[in-house]
Design a protein around this nucleic acid. Structure first.
Lengths: 173, 173
DNA sequence: ATGATTTTTTGATCCAGGTCAAAGGAATTC
DNA sequence: GAATTCCTTTGACCTGGATCAAAAAATCAT
């Protein structure tokens, strides 16, 4: 990696930790930071008719953030909290923008992230559109072998769009 | 628009027409072309357990293509055919690539298309995840006021992920 | 037009998975 | 280690929408 880039990164990034259950991003506030998980596990969720709906999980080497909030400068619907004690790199959006502007080689990384996101969404559409509850669960375990057992059942159910009771019954074979 | 770009475009684009029902892109063949609809309506679909599943419709000023096929050089799952008599601009991927390489100002257009696609996918996830059959239909009519009545019921049902019978009953109030 | 084909509607039946309610289990807290 | 809180399982019941089948309506080709 470019030496200058590394130097700028170190200058702009800090390490933060959160205890299990702690709120990392609050949907009621403007969020201007992005978190790159070093260790631990987070869940991004929003409220729908008073219930928490899980949008996705982030674990080691993944991002947790609220991009629409930092782009718009307003609160967005998503909150993030820690499922486990979690440590992460924290970077302010302004620094992020500075880095992207200063180091065009980062564009490749940005484009790649976008494609990863696209693939993920395409798969989610297919999941909700075509698969049964137990297919969803089997696929989830295959896709996230390292984290699926670290997440409370109810959150997995919410992520998969099925009820906790149904998922419990499925898991009991 | 850049005069040079306009000239290059004209050189590389041709107008083609298709009769209702005619196949525009065949999932069994490698596809190297993109179509920009001038007039008419197409449907992009794939086969799932022997049944045609509609992925999306394209009408005036929208694209119909098979991007994974032209990127991979192999056939992809998607076929496209004409719901109405349709005329379109046709451009070969190689020319597309040439234009993007030659005119960097097109990148903005590319990025915008990507974001449009992202938004569309996000909405589709939400649709399949949270909405009832009749909400889907109401939303579809609102979103596509200009084309919803031009598409056979069964195709709309397939696009929305509900059965034709159910959609028929919904439409009868 | 008229017969053929495609599309839509209607009826009957069925089931995956939701909801509600309550009881068990596990994990934290003091 | 008892108490509180959270998480998971189990049971009973219900419903939206799928499927199958067939009639009715619309559209097309000759």
């Amino acid at each position: 990696m470019n030496v200058l880039l590394r130097a700028e990164l170190l200058k702009r990034v800090s390490v933060v930790s959160f205890k299990r259950g702690e709120v990392i991003i609050d949907a009621n506030k403007v969020n201007t930071k992005s978190y790159y998980i070093l260790e631990g596990l987070t869940r991004t969720y929003f409220l729908k008719a008073g219930k928490e709906v899980v949008e996705y999980f982030s674990s080691e080497n993944e991002w947790a953030n609220s991009p629409r909030s930092w782009r718009s400068g307003k609160p967005d619907i998503y909150s993030v909290d820690a499922i486990e004690n979690t440590s992460a790199l924290c970077i302010h959006v302004d620094d992020m923008i500075f880095l992207f502007n200063t180091f065009p080689e980062l564009d490749k990384y940005g484009r790649l992230s976008m494609i990863t996101l696209l693939d993920h969404l395409i798969e989610r559409v297919a999941s909700f559109r075509f698969t049964t509850a137990s297919e969803k669960y089997i696929h989830f375990k295959q896709t996230y072998p390292l984290i699926h057992h670290r997440i409370p059942l109810g959150m997995v159910a919410s992520y998969l769009g099925i009820s906790q009771e149904t998922l419990s019954r499925i898991r009991m074979k």
